[in-house]
């Protein structure tokens, strides 16, 4: 049976269709989860996609973090279910307290849509397990508020705990200031929860699933979930 991805749609979400497309390319099934619902329809994995949930007029992700569906996502995550927040979804996870830190306005004070290089590192997560590319992943960003920020203790804890799972790097894999598109601390592009099952990232892997569109490096993140479940089933 294919893995079922639940894709949460808030009013103002716009990566839901792209995520569903990526999930299909990865050979899995996508179902829509409506923001006002309180149940997850038995999905195996939850994606919080990009967009401007409820317009993000108060603060990116602030209102969405209180949406009815998030209570269900919270329980799902607590039970070890894999949750991936992409862009606005990352902001929502931080606002909901499912991940530490916050996303500030880009250092440039401008919106940025561009390709970035990403190094996969840290402890394995449901989305990055098995990804050990020789060269940095090529995945684009598209955000105005993506500068990862947390207090020094939190950053140190993330680093020591292997919870920084994606970092902006140059073509040679070095986390240089020039490779950092938004001023994130430590070039952080993605982090995981302490248990590792909740991952938030600013770049858009769903836009990098086909060579036709410039890169297929993001597809592995959607495939990893199915591979992990298959592995778990085998070991059972």
């Amino acid at each position: 049976m294919p893995v079922r991805f639940g894709i949460v749609v808030f009013p103002g979400t716009w990566s839901d269709r792209d995520c569903a497309h990526a999930v299909a390319l990865a050979g899995s099934e996508a179902v829509t989860l409506w923001h006002a619902d309180r149940e997850l329809a038995g999905v195996d994995c939850v994606i919080l996609p990009g967009g401007f949930a409820y317009g993000d007029y108060l603060r990116a992700g602030a209102i969405a973090a209180h949406a009815p569906i998030i209570a269900a996502v919270r329980s799902f995550a607590a039970a070890g279910g894999p949750v991936l927040g992409i862009c606005n979804g990352f902001q929502v996870l931080c606002e909901a307290g499912l991940l530490p830190g916050a996303l500030l306005r880009n250092r440039s004070l401008q919106f940025r849509c561009q390709w970035t290089g990403l190094r996969v590192e840290g402890r394995p997560t449901p989305f990055t397990a098995g990804l050990a590319p020789a060269t940095p992943l090529r995945i684009p960003i598209s955000h105005g508020e993506g500068r990862y920020h947390a207090d020094p203790d939190t950053i140190a804890g993330l680093e020591l705990g292997g919870r920084v799972v994606l970092r902006y790097v140059d073509a040679r894999g070095a986390a240089t200031p020039d490779a950092n598109p938004n001023g994130s601390l430590h070039n952080i592009a993605g982090i995981a929860s302490a248990a590792g099952n909740v991952v938030g990232m600013m770049p858009h892997p769903e836009r990098a699933c086909e060579a036709l569109l410039g890169s297929a490096d993001g597809l592995g993140m959607f495939r990893a979930v199915a591979a992990a479940r298959l592995g778990a089933a085998r070991s059972r």
Binding site: L58, R59, A62, I63, H66, C94, E95, P100, G101, A102, L104, H149, A150, D151
Partner: peptide, 9 residues
Amino acid sequence: ERLLCNGVI
């Protein structure tokens, strides 16, 4: 604390 402000920032 719950909505209007984000204590991190």
